[in-house]
Design a protein around this nucleic acid. Structure first.
Lengths: 189, 189
DNA sequence: CCTCCGTACTCATCGATGTGAATAGTCAGA
DNA sequence: TCTGACTATTCACATCGATGAGTACGGAGG
């Protein structure tokens, strides 16, 4: 049950509404976890029932009233407990990998298309993440920021996202090169 | 529902029993998917009902009778259909990442321990995967094998596993260096 | 005026995944 | 001889995560 703790971690820096959280956890930004709005609203409700976050209603003039949440002391304690417990190892779990495993027995055209898309997606996320890092460290160098910055957690997870997406991009490019060359060779025979 | 297709892809090369599949999908080897024995037995039952695999009983002298499964033509067609459909993007989903996000608000000792373990785990998997690649390509060079080998899918997914674990290892080491330096600086103040 | 987009949230359901326990025989080592 | 590990599989349950639909309001653009 890490969604719970991902939400707590996301609320450490600032109060957020379910809607804002949902944007932070969606496709574009999620650098350390991913979840859909419905899951987040449900989790926030449970967290509040358990006293780990508190919400307050904020009426707005033109927009519907929103509910901002912040972490309680109990929430912080729970997060600390979670951080100290052993992590289960993370596994690669990716449809595309399954398809590539079967590459010799299925049509390669669609695979090439999907690998191209995936590589483009990885490049887009890399750009986004690198922009994010620049924003976080401001005018300091990375070394300087990581040594003395007061909030480095999000920076480190963003580095994780970059490492992951770089891997993604490189692997896609490698596989593309192989499949395309094999396709060219096969076509000639 | 990719477990279904992961099982089909795993059965492409050779007949396997549920038990053998379970070993292939467990911690050590799973280079393209991970699943527990119970899921696999359940999935095999469903796959057989749907006519995508067929099983045959193989009595053994000293061991209990096992049931070996192979992919049917319908299974192959289903796999092809799956490979041609769009993949949902894969997301990083890792407890440890959540913990690092909260690094500035929780005890760092346990984090350092977990990062060390994770890095060691990644190194172990890298060794394993590199051994696997050598076995698959035999005495050919990688380029030669990938150009002309007849079954490169598993090799390519294994390369994916290597890329992923290399990223894991590098990121863990980077984060370790940062957290340890900050701990040392903090202790001095 | 009408439609679409953005904010803000809820409900319901399904399939995927994880956990725990049970059975039952063989083999190797202390 | 007892213990634990390995082969081989099944059942039941709980929780997690994904998907689709639905509500309600306001503002922008054609």
């Amino acid at each position: 049950m890490a969604l719970r703790h991902a939400v707590l971690a996301a609320l450490l820096d600032r109060e957020l509404s379910g809607y804002q959280l949902a944007k932070a956890f969606d496709l574009g930004v999620a650098n350390f976890w991913h979840a859909l709005p419905q899951q987040l609203y449900a989790e926030l409700t449970r967290l509040e029932q358990d006293g780990l976050v508190t919400g307050r209603d904020v009426p707005q003039e033109t927009r519907p009233t929103k509910r901002l949440f912040r972490v309680t002391d109990a929430g912080l304690a729970e997060l600390d407990r979670f951080a100290a417990a052993a992590s289960k190892p993370s596994f690669l779990r990716d449809d595309l990998l399954v398809k590539i495993q079967a590459a010799d027995h299925v049509a390669v055209g669609p695979l090439i298309e999907q690998l191209t898309d995936r590589a483009a997606f990885a490049r887009a996320k890399l750009d986004l993440f690198e922009q994010l890092l620049r924003t976080m460290r401001g005018d300091r160098t990375e070394e300087e920021f990581l040594r003395h910055g007061e909030r480095v957690g999000p920076y480190l997870t963003c580095l994780g996202g970059i490492t992951y997406e770089r891997g993604n991009r490189d692997w896609c490019e490698r596989v593309l090169a192989v499949l395309e060359e094999r396709q060219a060779l096969g076509a000639r025979t």
